[in-house]
């Protein structure tokens, strides 16, 4: 056996377990799921019939599914831009090229690494009418009690606010790291041209932070569209379907109604939506980057 053949063989031996796992738990399921979505089949039932793209056309006309997609987009719009702007503002105000101490890092990351179930249980209390934390504060300000999680107008914003809280610390840490990478000489050069304060922020800080921001925007949006645990724990999709997000809708389709093949089709549609959203965001930021690179 030549040296090349030997390396070839050991290369494949080393990747074999991970590659086998990828094949069994990702590639086969993806293909199988495509196949499944072309049938009409309920879990635990023997009858199965080929229906082509019927599940897809049905889904795209299913008002409950469309409503859930819309709720997820609304949720992403409520939680992502505001969450990122607040984090960016805090990071810029902290400015000082600082390294956070382990204490602050741990404190800032704690909500984000916490279990979703635990966080949801704590926030159920935060939102309780009368005795909950937020309503106690509101009553001090002479604002009447709001039953956030049982009010169709408030439930989705309430969950979105919780996710701003969860994501705040890590985002601040990411932006602080991004700020460390901005060369001080840029600010000095800009100051010579009279650009300080807001103008320096617009023409230097913001464009230099675009790669970090792009990463935060795309990953946050993707996970916001798929939000599941807080809805499952806090509202079960209610009141009046106001928090029926797409992740929860597909969960119910698959595991409560057992419409297995329909749920597969819906999760593929969701996958396409997510890919499109990510692509659009990527394109938009790319343009922004090009527009600024000539400053």
């Amino acid at each position: 056996m030549t040296l090349r053949q030997k390396e070839n063989r050991s290369g494949w031996l080393f990747v074999a377990p991970a590659a086998l796992h990828l094949f069994v738990f990702a590639l086969v399921p993806i293909l199988f799921s495509i196949g499944l979505s072309l049938y009409r089949w309920k879990l635990y039932r023997p009858e199965k019939s080929f229906v082509g793209v019927d599940n897809y056309t049905y889904s795209l006309r299913d008002p409950a599914f469309l409503n859930s997609l819309w709720n997820s987009l609304k949720y992403a719009l409520m939680s992502v831009p505001s969450g990122i702007i607040v984090a960016l503002a805090i990071a810029v105000m902290l400015n000082q090229k600082m390294r956070l101490s382990p204490f602050f890092r741990t404190v800032y990351y704690l909500p984000a690494i916490s279990s979703g179930v635990a966080i949801s249980m704590i926030w159920i209390y935060m939102y309780l009418p009368e005795s909950g934390f937020i309503n106690t504060v509101l009553s001090k300000l002479h604002i009447g009690s709001i039953d956030f999680l049982k009010d169709a107008n408030w439930a989705l914003p309430a969950i979105a606010f919780m996710s701003i809280w969860t994501g705040l610390g890590p985002r601040v840490v990411l932006f602080l790291a991004g700020l460390v990478g901005v060369p001080q000489t840029l600010y000095e050069a800009a100051a010579l041209d009279g650009a300080v304060g807001w103008r320096a922020f617009r023409s230097i800080t913001l464009p230099m932070l675009i790669p970090t921001t792009l990463f935060v925007v795309v990953t946050s949006t993707i996970s916001a569209i798929q939000v599941f645990t807080p809805v499952y724990m806090m509202t079960k999709g209610g009141p009046e379907d106001a928090t029926e997000v797409v992740g929860y809708h597909i969960y119910n389709e698959a595991w409560t109604s057992f419409n297995t093949s329909l749920a597969s089709a819906k999760s593929f549609i969701l996958f396409v939506v997510i890919a499109l959203v990510a692509l659009v965001q990527f394109r938009m930021t790319q343009k922004q980057l090009e527009g600024h690179s000539t400053f």
């Binding site: 991970a18 990828l22 069994v24 738990f25 990702a26 590639l27 086969v28 399921p29 993806i30 199988f32 799921s33 499944l36 993707i222 798929q226 992740g247 597909i250 698959a254 297995t260 749920a263 597969s264 999760s267 593929f268 969701l270 996958f271 997510i274 890919a275």
Partner: peptide, 19 residues
């Protein structure tokens, strides 16, 4: 390997469950 990261877990859930 890289491409598989794009697929959200929800696409795989049902087949993995069946398996």
């Amino acid at each position: 390997f890289l491409g598989s990261m794009m697929f959200a877990g929800s696409v795989m859930q049902i087949p993995v469950y069946l398996m």
